[in-house]
Design a protein around this nucleic acid. Structure first.
Lengths: 233, 233
DNA sequence: CGGCATCCGGGAAGATACTG
DNA sequence: CAGTATCTTCCCGGATGCCG
């Protein structure tokens, strides 16, 4: 007999809240638990399955992922959907309000990019890469470009549209692209943010470019980082 | 004898990190622990003492506050300073980079203001109130106003300057104000954000206005909230 | 395989008491 | 006032196992 507690139905873990009417504190009630924001981040480019989330969040354990998905669903930040057959599997997808967390990631990312302790050699996923594009694109540098750019990151593909100094990105098959990058997300980040020479990445076979090469080279310069704390501006 | 571990010096609690190069994940390494962001919030209008922080963060315990202050100081987000005598007590003050977290609070606050579960009846501090002013001010509604507005919130006083559709706020003695509000932060929030009639708050003795009353009444309308999730826009 | 329940060990958070 | 010490509780992380 499993040590039995008399309860009516399922025991609610009674989420720990800040008793604070400040809206930011309430945001932390909903998103402040460990892993919660990273789960949301991984869904920013569309629905994923449980095991995709586990794979894209190395370090999270299955039961914690289950708890976070429950909590985020209860809060109305994401929903469970059943995909239609074939492959009638379950996926998790952000609600409209869930997608509206993007400014939070942008603010966190811009701020932490200045951190003296930021280690760019850690693992880096495709979602983070494309979120960083939307965060860091410099509209002035991108002026005058009108292009469709494809990305093959592992088994996934993404399409970006540059125009009017803005960028739109979606997980989508590559079609009608002016140029296509094929590389790991870490490699793209090393070239764009850490200044690794493009030729070096190509020579190592870590990155391949098909199509308009001058466009590709210019694209890599559109995402300047802010100066680190303690450095000259 | 306190069960003794052989260590050189103090034991480092080995902070739990996400192994993720994403800058937003790194931000959570630095600010993601429980209470950390609220400690930073309380310092956004200037240095405070340990016991001020305890008083303004009901629910935090002394040892957790100690740990957070240590961690935030180690990360370079705040510093300990000794005030010059008289009253040579210790205070905690954000670094420049610490003050740059304000966009994070604005993004979190704007997002959570739409939450269906947000409870505005919870305790609400002066720092949150004035941060919310900077976050929610509608520049169009504020156009054409040029005024100095004072606030007496409990024992503290703040001065706001409205001009060019923007607002500047500082913890400061009231001087040369066109109008002065005296009320608890919760009362100000109830009138501005929850639509409590001004006359009702005044009749209850919860709010007093000295000076330019039409200006005061207009000021209270400058901070529109976004529509809640599930409501019409 | 996908999703969830259960058990366990370690450690962080919460509450209280105490010290310089 | 500014923290430490101690104790308890709960969360996190890992492993295992069940069930569709």
């Amino acid at each position: 007999m499993k040590s039995q507690k008399i309860t009516s139905g399922r025991e609610k873990p009674s989420p720990r809240r800040y008793d604070d009417a400040c809206a930011a504190a309430h945001a932390l009630d909903l998103l402040g638990e460990r892993w919660a924001l990273l789960v949301v981040r991984e869904l920013m480019f569309g629905a994923k399955r449980f095991s995709d989330l586990r794979a894209d969040l190395p370090g999270i354990s299955a039961n914690v992922l289950t708890q976070r998905l429950e909590g985020l669903a209860a809060a109305g930040i994401l929903v469970r959907r059943k995909l239609p057959p074939p492959g009638a599997t379950q996926v998790y997808e952000l609600t409209q309000w869930g997608y509206e967390t993007e400014p939070v990631f942008q603010a966190l990312g811009r701020w932490a990019a200045r951190s003296p302790h930021h280690d760019p050699t850690l693992p880096f996923g495709a979602t983070s890469l494309f979120l960083s594009f939307r965060t860091m694109l410099d509209p002035v540098l991108a002026e005058g470009i009108d292009a469709r750019i494809g990305f093959r990151i592992g088994a996934e593909s993404f399409m970006a549209r540059l125009g009017d100094g803005r960028i739109e990105i979606a997980r989508a098959p590559i079609s009608d692209a002016d140029v296509v990058f094929a590389a790991a997300a870490t490699t793209m980040a090393a070239v764009i943010y850490a200044g690794q020479p493009l030729s070096e990445a190509e020579a190592a076979g870590a990155l391949a470019i098909e199509g308009d090469r001058p466009l590709a080279e210019r694209f890599l310069t559109l995402f300047p980082l802010p100066s680190r704390v303690g450095e000259a501006g």
